[in-house]
């Protein structure tokens, strides 16, 4: 299961992940999220320079089956957007932790990272979800 939730990432209950490097965070959605969505056909993301706030909706992912909101795991200013997803949304299905990343933000409140789950906690969270 380790490749399902890489150990170097932090996770949310809404199935986003964040990779913290210094004062920036790269954000994406998890393998589990992608499995649930099925084939992704469109991704709506903020523009560079916009600010997003933890737990607010910052975009959406459309799959053939459904549309799902993206909730910001952390607050900050968007410094990079994975624009190739516009033309190749299947990166999300194929490589959710690599080519399927969504945005990169400059953290405005790095202390927020303390509220996110580790890979082990996220795995446990999924197990609990499954049990219900």
């Amino acid at each position: 299961m380790s490749q399902d939730h890489p150990a170097n990432l932090l996770y949310t209950r809404e199935h986003e992940w964040a990779r913290i490097e210094g004062n920036t965070a790269t954000i994406g959605i998890t393998h589990f999220a992608v499995e649930q969505l099925g084939d992704v056909t469109q991704v709506d993301l903020p523009r560079e320079g916009e600010t997003i706030r933890k737990e607010d909706v910052f975009g959406s992912v459309e799959s053939v089956k459904a549309v799902s909101d993206l909730y910001a795991p952390l607050s900050g200013k968007v410094v990079k957007v994975n624009n190739p997803l516009n033309d190749t949304p299947q990166y999300l299905n194929d490589e959710p932790y690599d080519d399927g990343w969504l945005i990169q933000i400059e953290l405005s409140n790095p202390a927020e990272t303390a509220s996110l789950m580790t890979a082990a906690q996220y795995a446990e969270f999924l197990r609990d979800q499954d049990a219900h």
Binding site: E14, H15, E16, I29, A33, Q36, L37, V61, K65, A66, S68, D69, L70, Y71
Partner: peptide, 8 residues
């Protein structure tokens, strides 16, 4: 992501 609600 929302908990993937709305799937019939």
């Amino acid at each position: 992501m929302v908990p993937f609600g709305g799937w019939d």
